[in-house]
Design a protein around this nucleic acid. Sequence first.
DNA 1: GGCAATTTTGCAACCGGTTGCAAAAAGCGC
DNA 2: GCGCTTTTTGCAACCGGTTGCAAAATTGCC
Lengths: 332, 332
Amino acid sequence: MAVTLKEVAERAGVSRSAVSRTFTDGASVSDKMRRKVEKAAKELGYSPNALASSLTTGRTKLIGLVSNNFHNPIFLEVFDLFTRGLQDRGLRPLLVNLTDETDPENSVRMLRQYSVDGVVVASSTLPPEFAKAFRDAGVPVVHSFGRASSAPQVHVVGIDNVECGRMAARELVRRGYTHVGFMGGPEGASSTQDRYSGFMAEMSAHPDIKASHSFADAYSFDAGRREMLRLLKNGPAQAYFCGDDVLSIGALSAIDDSGLSCPDNIGIIGLNDMEMAQWENIDLTTIHQPIRQIVTSSIELMVAMLDDPERYPETRIFPCSIVERGTLKPGI
Amino acid sequence: MAVTLKEVAERAGVSRSAVSRTFTDGASVSDKMRRKVEKAAKELGYSPNALASSLTTGRTKLIGLVSNNFHNPIFLEVFDLFTRGLQDRGLRPLLVNLTDETDPENSVRMLRQYSVDGVVVASSTLPPEFAKAFRDAGVPVVHSFGRASSAPQVHVVGIDNVECGRMAARELVRRGYTHVGFMGGPEGASSTQDRYSGFMAEMSAHPDIKASHSFADAYSFDAGRREMLRLLKNGPAQAYFCGDDVLSIGALSAIDDSGLSCPDNIGIIGLNDMEMAQWENIDLTTIHQPIRQIVTSSIELMVAMLDDPERYPETRIFPCSIVERGTLKPGI
DNA sequence: GGCAATTTTGCAACCGGTTGCAAAAAGCGC
DNA sequence: GCGCTTTTTGCAACCGGTTGCAAAATTGCC
């Protein structure tokens, strides 16, 4: 079917190595030879088989992009940034969807069969073991949106979720609320735990302010809505830090439906600053997560690791910042 | 680094072919041999190199997944369904982001270099030429969410956008509106054109009802909002068929901000039925696009084509239906 | 033009598998 | 145990490239 190097060589009347060299940069070929080969290649419509060459070079330029967040719109942006960023560097993303997969083994085996040069795990809910499984298999790995660790075993790029929790708490205090709530995502996710502990740590410095907490069972609109409806029934706090923007929007919907208004009756601060948060009919005050920087940095780290697979694991944390919109009362 | 077939063969004290055969199903190996090989393989942690074997078998099980819709949340669902569906059949999606790419040539070349077995073009805005470029290169291709054609040159799976336009028009008529509007997405997209022509065709049967039209410059919240604000200033229609749900939600926001209300002052019907459309604070009446069926069918078609690349091109159109929610007045 | 240093080229082995073919082994009936 | 058929196995060539090495060609210098 496809044109091979051998055919080009025959047509150009040169050796196979000569053809190979004109298509590998850094190889020594005379101008005359290059012209001859390129002419023949063009006539035949030849383009080299990346997979065959990977066999000898040991490089496929394939990068496994592993994720389980196919329901949070923010991940569409993440995929957009990753795919473009990788493409720009001549790398190809091989997408792996872990939605109904709990065991890393399978994905590890599959990605090894395809000899990926590296793996990016893009998820805030997958446990660190997942990324570690790849490292143990000898594959360079970056865990994007992963949990910061003081003793990282793999490269992690993300935000400081504990600090985000503190930041949200500080903001609610600053605004003068005297009863605040933490409404987290799934309790098992490390990101939820971190945000929770940061939030509570900060609140413990304010014993005069009442702080309560609860957890929604998913990072989804419905879960946020359900949880807020439940809270409203049982005497809610004055303002909530919601585990993420989608949850926040669900909560907003519940507040609205109950005939209450935000921020007049209940305040909400989210996390992520997804595109939708700035839509005028949502206008969510939230903590901005620098997605673009996280993705860019992850890719840079991956590229660096392709050069030096033994590179010492590092953690890159990007600061978040509050975006003031309309779902918290002005404050004092 | 990785364990090779040769090492397994040596350890098991058998020939390389024997090892190869125990890992290819349908090959003849005795039970004794199989056990010996599997033992050695397990001890060494061997798993076959899919790329190397693709060299001789001519099959990589890689499928190019090409898209340019990285801003419409509905595509997150599309990616989710595609990646899982492909994975379930042992195929691997190689993601290609065409956002800033206009020329098919590049993508075609790249995907050929990686010897993909087939390509799925998932986009309602890419021109048919894009898909055709792959077909011309001898790669099986399915255009999902593509335009129905009476003389298809490639396999197309999608909806009948003309009929959707008619359907929306009929619904607005049925509801008793006497001045209706078509607010399309980007004028160049074939999906927009089809929805427009269907809408207008239906309206031409109702000369008593005024029908106007305009186009937003993107399928985005902002574009929908901007366009609706403009329309509101210049004397709007009573109800609009918006090119897509995201546009609709932008329009809703504009209506809300202008102190008007939907559906009391202005009605809206969208298209797609994205997850968000059913959120209680949006509650958008819209035309449901059967995404799941489209994706499933696309994958089936792709699998069929892997068996028979010469398969005669076919068009699969799935019917859409109206989901009644709260953004149109009840009607007569 | 002659010689040494440098560049370009082709040979052949190799990357990690698969597969047609023939030899070896196993199974079968007597 | 023998001859015949069927199954299993290994050899060797091949898939589409790359690359170390040595031979051939070119270049530079006197």
